[in-house]
Computed example of a mutant assay.
Amino acid sequence: MIRVLIADDQAIVRAAIANLLATQEEIEVVGEAEDGAEAVRLADELRPDVALLDIRMPGLNGIEAARTILSRPGTATKALMLTTFDLDAYVYDALAAGASGFLLKDATFPELLHAVRVVAAGNALLAPEVTKRLIGEFVRQRPPTSRPHRGTGEPTARETEDASLTSRETEVLTLIARGFSNADIAHRLTISNHTVKTHINRIFTKLRLSDRAQAVIRAYEMGLVEPPP
């Protein structure tokens, strides 16, 4: 059973999502919140598998709520953000806070179900037409990541991590950031799916990443891909 918490300041939106999810036997809506503060309280109390959080809410917004919920020791809750394409400056921060992906407010019912199931399974929802565009938009506006060297001239720990990737791992990371699935990467590089998974596991370990969302962010920060025009 997938236990879902819905947080949106619009009662109609909350009710619509709750009613749709309630039609599925394996999904249970365990709580509804009208703002971020209530979402945090209910998440602590109910421990849902997925917290579906609107980014724009009064008081404590969805990103701040996600950051608080996901920082709880031992939490298994995953955050799925509700957004629209006119949101830009919040996207990078939501992923940096640990959100597993984004769902457009005008998403279809199948897209809603798919998003909840993907995130509940511990995967990142990185549809190229949604998350890649949003991340790219904000990275273009965000000042370049500063990576100063220590006084001795030695590289920082983060630079060392980035440099530790092999050429093939760098290639795989680049393709992840461009929205390619494991199968697409395997086909493009003429390698097996198992080999792709091995490369990804090594990338995540070397760069201390937890999911593909963080991998996309790091690829942009490393300059492996450019924001879309």
Score class of each variant (00 low, 15 high):
M1Q: 13
V4I: 02
L5C: 00
L5Y: 00
A7P: 00
D8I: 09
D9L: 07
Q10T: 13
A11W: 03
I12S: 11
I12E: 11
I12T: 14
V13P: 13
R14K: 09
R14C: 11
A15V: 08
I17S: 02
A18I: 01
A18D: 04
I27E: 02
I27T: 01
I27W: 00
V30K: 04
E32Y: 00
A33I: 08
E34I: 15
G36D: 04
E38C: 14
A39T: 10
V40S: 08
R41F: 14
A43N: 13
D44T: 12
D44L: 15
E45C: 08
L46S: 01
P48D: 08
V50Y: 01
V50E: 06
V50I: 08
A51Q: 05
I55S: 03
R56H: 07
R56D: 00
M57Q: 09
P58M: 01
N61M: 04
G62S: 05
I63N: 07
E64L: 07
E64P: 01
A65F: 10
R72Q: 15
G74H: 03
T77S: 06
T77Q: 05
T77Y: 01
K78T: 06
K78D: 05
A79G: 11
A79L: 09
A79R: 09
F85M: 15
D88M: 15
A89K: 06
Y90T: 08
Y90I: 08
V91Y: 04
L95E: 04
A96N: 10
A97K: 03
G98M: 05
A99M: 05
G101S: 06
D106Y: 07
T108N: 13
P110G: 10
E111S: 12
L112Q: 11
L112K: 08
L113P: 00
H114T: 07
G122I: 11
G136S: 04
E137F: 04
F138N: 05
V139M: 06
V139I: 14
Q141S: 11
R142G: 05
S146W: 06
P148G: 08
H149Q: 10
R150E: 13
T152S: 14
P155G: 10
T156F: 07
A157W: 10
E161G: 04
D162N: 14
A163K: 13
S167D: 08
R168V: 07
T170H: 07
E171C: 13
T174I: 01
I176P: 02
I176M: 12
N182Q: 15
I185M: 03
A186D: 10
R188F: 13
R188L: 12
L189V: 10
L189Q: 12
L189A: 09
N193R: 12
V196R: 13
V196C: 14
K197L: 13
H199D: 12
I200W: 00
R202D: 11
I203N: 04
F204W: 10
T205L: 14
K206T: 03
L207D: 06
L209Y: 02
A213H: 04
A213N: 03
A215T: 05
I217A: 04
I217N: 02
A219K: 02
L224G: 00
P227E: 01
P227T: 00
P228V: 05
